[in-house]
Design a protein around this nucleic acid. Structure first.
Lengths: 250, 250
DNA sequence: AGCAGAAATTGACCCAAATCAAATGACCGT
DNA sequence: ACGGTCATTTGATTTGGGTCAATTTCTGCT
């Protein structure tokens, strides 16, 4: 892959792909700093279904998702599993200062990650204030998402959970495609029923039933198992039980 | 209150109370920086039961809890509420860069907070790298706690939820008092049954029933409603369904 | 000490979601 | 077209925790 480290604010380089054009690591880095990142960076690909990191593994890198979708899950000894994070392009993976992974990360689609060797990345963080500042903003966003998710897990009904997940996916799609979250809306589910169940703290049967119910009630239209159309976004948001803005402030 | 801004690494000043002796904001700040923090800092007290911040309020400060316990909660229009954070001494409150509070914060005991005016604090963060670095570490810890909590909310039974909460409180007490998490262990519940229910995604009746069940089964001993003794910590951890270390890596 | 109000317990009943079990559909390579 | 595997749907039944309703126990307060 070709690499350009020249330092125009929006220089498009490989690093750009994972750190500038997305909302990721080094948006405000100088050319010198970019060059330094280049040196400790490498790419990895994973196939759909492959485990990227096992909980307990030694972590030799931190990374940024370039393309594809991965999940962060926690599992109890008896096999009960709960998804605790969803990784989309531009999301950061790993924790500076942590040697051992706390969670299992699994690719749900093919995934391309831009990895930085952990030790030098940590060293660089000490010297480069906006790296920590950027990471702080991203982590605070994740924490907000986790809290929204906790409300869902603790207090919402199965139907509300499904509606919430669908509107989260719909809104993210809208954000990526820069369409306004208006009327007609169409997208593919990036998760199996089982993954959705692990996300929502349900069984896959309940997920299936509630999706069928929402279809019967005309809240969504299904085309195949995975392709969803939302004829009336407001109706879906209402079913999700969120306040009107869908839970997004800021 | 007397304030000393002289710059010995562990100078005990008012600021020290909330930022050095606890694990909080400015552990690595220079004397100059401490002096700067002094200028934008003030104290506030809240009585048990009082709301500190309403979701949607303008936030004029960020803060650090000095003494007491507060909760972060989210509420749906129909009144269902879920606790999404528990604030203990040294915990940070508020989000730099956010004008409007996303959550309601309530004092469950009398609370003393050390507040910093938000705007100058944000300015200072830009100039002072270790502030952001410190905050990043704290936020990552909170995110880990939130993820542990998500597993609890999504996949644990009522009994496991109660056992988990009790062991979290027990272990925190052990940490503060520097006792090893050994056999006999005793503490007061800082939360009402209702607050515990909001923490765990249960009703207060279920909380009450499960506490009674754990008492009947000899896992805990109650002395009054609030004082708990754990005769065998391992047994409690087993009931919590966590891996043996109680879910703490790092 | 005695009373009022809040916090907590306990009981009876019900229902949403889990569990167990089959059937159907989609996609693959041959 | 033909099995074979995996994902999904749908049905029948059970159950854990919610709901509704009394008590009982604490905690001030005068």
């Amino acid at each position: 892959m070709t690499v350009s480290t020249d330092a125009l604010p929006f220089a498009v380089s490989d690093c750009g792909d994972c750190t500038i054009r997305h909302r990721a690591v080094c948006a405000r880095c100088s050319g010198e700093e970019l060059a330094e990142l280049e040196k400790i960076k490498f790419y990895r690909t994973y196939e759909a279904g492959q485990t990227i990191v096992w909980a307990g593994d030694q972590m030799e890198f931190v990374a940024s998702v370039v393309t594809g979708i991965a999940t962060i899950t926690q599992t109890m000894e008896d096999g009960r599993t709960q998804m605790v994070g969803l990784l989309l392009p531009s999301d950061f993976v790993g924790r500076p200062g942590r040697e051992v992974a706390a969670y299992t990360i699994t690719a749900t689609t093919n995934v391309l990650m831009c990895c930085f060797r952990r030790k030098p990345f940590e060293k660089m963080m000490e010297r480069t204030p906006h790296l920590a500042q950027r990471l702080l903003q991203m982590t605070l966003d994740e924490l907000d998402a986790a809290r929204e998710w906790m409300l869902l897990l603790g207090r919402k009904t199965a139907r509300e959970k499904i509606a919430s997940l669908l509107s989260i996916i719909a809104q993210r799609n809208a954000a990526l495609q820069l369409r306004k979250p208006a009327d007609q809306m169409t997208f593919d589910l990036p998760l199996t029923r089982e993954a959705m169940a692990d996300y929502l703290g349900l069984t896959l049967e309940t997920v299936s039933r509630q999706i069928s119910a929402l279809r019967r009630d005309g809240v969504i239209v299904l085309d195949g198992k995975r392709h969803v159309t939302v004829p009336d976004m407001d109706k879906l948001l209402l079913e999700a039980g969120d306040d009107s803005d869908g839970g997004f402030f800021n």
